[in-house]
Structures are given as structure tokens and as C-alpha cells.
Amino acid sequence: MISASGSLDRKALHSLFEQTLHIQGKSVPVAETETLTNLGFSSLDLAELTVRLEDHIGKELAVEAAEIRPLRTVGDLLDLMSALSG
């Protein structure tokens, strides 16, 4: 769901993440503690997820390399996507 500020709630972000994984034929994690490496989540997947998020919120996002490097888990990724969409 999109909030009044235009950002997506965590459930909606998780849904976009799941859709991205599903399209790539990758398994969908149950826990936010699951590592992105174990899922086979790649930079291409991140680019696709970012485009999906941009489409949903109606604005272009600027993702810096420094923001991407510390991403380790699904929760880390959802935190970043939440911050970018807000």
C-alpha cells in the first residue's frame, strides 16, 4: 500500500521483492534474516527491483554504491527500499 507521503509500506515492498525473485525463478525467503547471497540475488535483480519501485512510487531513485555495499539480508534490502521510497 502507498502511504500519503507516496512511500510503500513494508508489506508492499516485500511483495515487489517476491515478484522480482519469482520472475527470476528464485526461491522466495520466509525470513528477513535470509541472506541475499543464499537467494542468488544479484545486481541485476536489484536493478529490476529498483525499477519496479520507481514505477510504483512514480519517481526516479538514486541508489548510491555506498548504500548497496552493506546489504546482506532481505531485511537490509527492504530497509534501503523503504528509505529510498520515503
Rank of each mutant, 00 (worst) to 15 (best):
A31R: 15
S43N: 12
D76F: 04
P29W: 00
R72L: 05
E18C: 15
L36D: 00
L39C: 01
T35A: 00
V30M: 12
S3L: 13
H14R: 14
T50K: 11
K26F: 01
A65G: 10
R10T: 13
I57Q: 01
A12T: 10
L16G: 06
D55E: 14
E67I: 08
I23E: 14
L13G: 05
D79G: 10
V30R: 13
V30L: 15
I23Q: 14
L78I: 15
T35F: 00
P29T: 00
G58D: 03
F41T: 00
E32K: 15
A4S: 09
L71S: 09
A4M: 11
S3K: 14
A65C: 06
E48Y: 09
D79K: 13
K11I: 13
H14C: 09
D45T: 05
T37M: 08
T50Q: 09
G75E: 01
L53F: 06
E67M: 10
E48R: 11
S27I: 10
D76V: 03
E64S: 12
L46H: 08
E67D: 14
T33K: 05
L36I: 03
I68Y: 02
S7E: 13
L61R: 06
E32T: 14
L21H: 04
G6E: 02
P70W: 02
L78E: 03
A31C: 11
S3Y: 14
I23Y: 10
L36C: 01
S43T: 06
R69V: 10
D79S: 13
G75L: 02
L36M: 00
S5M: 09
S3R: 13
L61D: 10
N38E: 09
L49H: 08
E60Y: 02
T35K: 06
L46K: 09
E34N: 05
Q19P: 04
E32S: 14
K59L: 05
S3H: 14
H14N: 10
L78V: 09
G75A: 07
P29I: 01
D45R: 04
L46T: 08
L39F: 01
H22S: 15
G75Q: 05
V74G: 07
E54F: 00
L77D: 01
L53E: 09
L44H: 08
V74F: 04
V28R: 10
R52Y: 10
V74H: 02
S7Y: 10
I57P: 03
T73N: 00
R72I: 06
L21S: 04
G58R: 00
A47C: 08
I57E: 07
E54W: 05
